[in-house]
Structure formats: C-alpha cells, structure tokens
Design a protein around this nucleic acid. Structure first.
Lengths: 210, 210
DNA sequence: ACTGACTGACCGTCAGTCAGTCAAGTCAGT
DNA sequence: ACTGACTTGACTGACTGACGGTCAGTCAGT
C-alpha cells in the first residue's frame, strides 16, 4: 500500500480518534485492531508503533475524554462571579444539550456493549471530578446553602450512586422509571449536602405529579 | 484420555466450581477455557456441551453466587421476631466475618483483574437485593425509625453508592481512607432513610476520633 | 439398540511481533 | 550551491501463537 508519512502527533491523534469512534460504535471487545487500521489505511505495525497494546489505546481514549470533562468542570468551578448553586446547576443541570459532545459522550459511554470503557471512565470520573465538586461544596458551605462534614467523600459517594441512573439505561428502563430515579437522586443529594429541599430542582426540569 | 462419565448435574457443578475458582484467581479474561478443562481433565467439547459460550458460564457463576446471597438476605428479611434495625445490622454489619465466603467473595470480586465478574455482580446485586432491603425499610417506616418517600429507589441509589467503598480497594487506599469512607456512607444512609444519627453505628464498630 | 455424555482434531479470528522498507533530513566533499 | 552517501525513525505486512468455538464421531450405561 502507498506509504504516507505523517507527523507523529497527527498520526497518533488519527488512530486515537478512529479507535474512539469504532469502540463506541461496535464496543471495545468486538472491535479488532484490524478494523481500526483498515479504516485509517495503515499497517498493523503502525498501530503497535504508537500503542503497546489494545488496552493501552483504551486507556489513552479514557484519559483524553476525561481531561476534556475535567477542564470544563474546572472552568466552571473557578468562575468567581458564580454562586455555588449556580455552579452546581451549570455542571449537573440538563441545560447543556447544545454543546456537541458532553451529552453525547455520556450517552454513548453507556451503550450495553461498552462495559470496559464504561467502568474505566466511571471510576476515573469519580476520582478526578470529585475534588472539583467538593471545592464548590466548600464554597456553598461558606455561602450558607450547604452543610456537610466531609465534602470530598460525600461527593464521591453521591457520584458513585448517581451511576444507578445511567446504569439503568443499560437495562432499557422506562421513562417513568428513569424519572423516579432522578427525583430520588435529587432528594438524596439535597439531604446529603444539607441543602434546602427543592434547591436542586434544576435536575428535574418538569416535576411529575407522581 | 480415559473417558469418565458423571451425572450431568455433578459434571456441570464441577465445571462451574473450577471456573469460579480460576476466574477469581487469574481473572476472567486471562483464564482460558483450555485452562479450565485441563484442570478438570475433560475435553473442550465437554465444556461446550454444558455451556454455550465463555460469557455463558460467567453468567452461571454470577447467578449461583448471587442466589446464595439473596437467599441469606431473604431469610433475615422474613424473620418476624426482628426489628427493622436489627435486620439492617444483620445484613450490613461487619459481624459476619466468620461465615466463610460472604467476605471472601467480596474481597476477591474486587481484584483489579476481575472487572467483568465485578460489574456484572454489582449490577445484579443491586437489582435483586434492593427489593429485600426496601421491604425492611417499609417495616422500619411502620416502626417509626425510618422516613423515606421511595424506599426502593433510595435503596438502589445507596447500594450503588456504597460501591465506592469497595471500589476503593482496587486502588489500595489506606486504612484511614477506608474508615473515612465508611463513616460518610453511614451518615448518608441515615440522612437518606430519615434515620436517627448514630442509628447505623454498627457499620463503624470503633468510632475514630478524627 | 439406543441415548446422551463425552472426545479431540480442527477452524477462523485476533492480538501482538519483527525483519525489513522507504522517505526525509544531515552533512562531508566538491 | 549541488550531489550523493549516510542516518533516523515512521511505516509495512507476513507471520505466530493462543484463543473461543464446532462437529463428526466414540463409548458407557441402560
């Protein structure tokens, strides 16, 4: 095949992006290295020139995705003009439907066939995002809207628990089920953070009657 | 090789037990069907006579392990002489260190190489155990020790969140870390269920000073 | 004679290897 | 400045070993 040489960073990025797309589409296990290189049009060796194994590129994808999310969250957390509650809404609200990938990422990550991607990202998300959220909670304590003793660990617990929302998708639960779960999640968050009931209403845009 | 015929249930159980042991020891992915059958001394075909695929036997192991746990929990939940709090202590307390496998299972399940077993069991545990716990919560509401609106979904959330305790093991967190996490877990459970502070003290046998 | 538990050679696929190719850059000699 | 030998490192693709899975056939018990 015609030999096309590219700048290493460009080639690496090309492989990561293609693998990312195919892993999400077909699932990690069902997507062979062969598929990835055929899609790009490079040889097997090129893949292993840049990545030492298949799990290795999975880790690279997770790192990349996560650093984007973390950066976004840091931007919000460090914004001095916002109150703690406003920051919570910005990060947890369903408002940001428009911004291309933050929602899509969450959705695709939870396709049933993506268990490897799913759990790896979940654990890392909890560990890396929690300190940022905890910082906002500290701010909220100062503002008198929250009351918790151990913000970091509390956030970690809540983050982990919130997975039961998304895990539900994997079993194809009904709309009503999901809505109930979202309401309960809101209630527990409010109780755990010592926030006023209803202060996290932005998580449940249209309150259902029952 | 010498042909040894056994009763189907016996052979099936033999394969499940061996696979269970080897999966826990080496991890699901790193343990080949070849290893399992060599250990037992049967042919490849025997394995596929009883199980239609490798994931299939994984499911069988999860089902077996889970049904043991569920049965135990049901036994406690249906005991008419116990209060709701006593049942909670029986199921969540660290008292049952002696009973051979409930703790060991939990420990081995959380080895890093056992992700497949880990997540499959986690999800199934949450789904199957939650109704039983929820029933106890209902009883507790009647006894005036709990106050929650949606016991089932609340328990599901708490169960999922409690994984952050065990997931911590995978990263080798320190004793102090684990203890902090356990305290926070207790606090959130009490708040979420509307139980009196300290009523779940059995989760943290020796209260640390700080 | 018949059933069904059991065998093991065989297949396709996949992750990973490696000896070698090729393009582009470097630089000494003219 | 130009040329051509030399070096570097991106890239190739045939190959290997191991794996999950199949199936035509064998044998023990009834």
């Amino acid at each position: 095949m015609a030999r096309i040489v590219k700048a290493p960073e460009e080639r690496r990025a090309e492989i990561v992006e293609t693998a990312d797309r195919l892993f999400r589409q077909y699932g990690y296990a069902k997507c062979s290295v062969e598929m990835i290189i055929r899609e790009i049009g490079v040889a097997k060796g090129t893949f292993y020139y840049y990545f030492k194994s298949k799990p290795d590129i999975l880790q690279a994808i997770v790192d990349k995705t996560l650093s984007q999310i973390v950066e976004m969250a840091k931007g919000v957390a460090d914004e001095p003009s916002l109150t703690a509650m406003q920051k919570m809404e910005a990060l947890l609200g369903n408002s940001h439907i428009g911004d291309d990938n933050s929602l899509e990422v969450a959705e695709m990550l939870h396709l049933p066939e993506n268990r490897e991607l799913h759990e790896l990202t979940n654990i890392q998300t909890v560990l890396q995002l929690s300190p940022i959220l905890a910082q906002i909670v500290e701010q909220g304590i100062g503002e008198g809207v929250f009351e918790v003793e151990r913000p970091l660990e509390t956030i970690q617990f809540l983050f982990t628990g919130a997975q039961f929302l998304t895990d539900g998708d994997m079993f194809g639960f009904s709309e009503a089920e999901i809505r109930k779960r979202r309401l309960v999640t809101q209630t527990i968050i409010e109780k755990a953070l010592g926030a006023a009931p209803g202060s996290f209403d932005f998580m449940n845009p249209i309150r259902a009657v029952e």
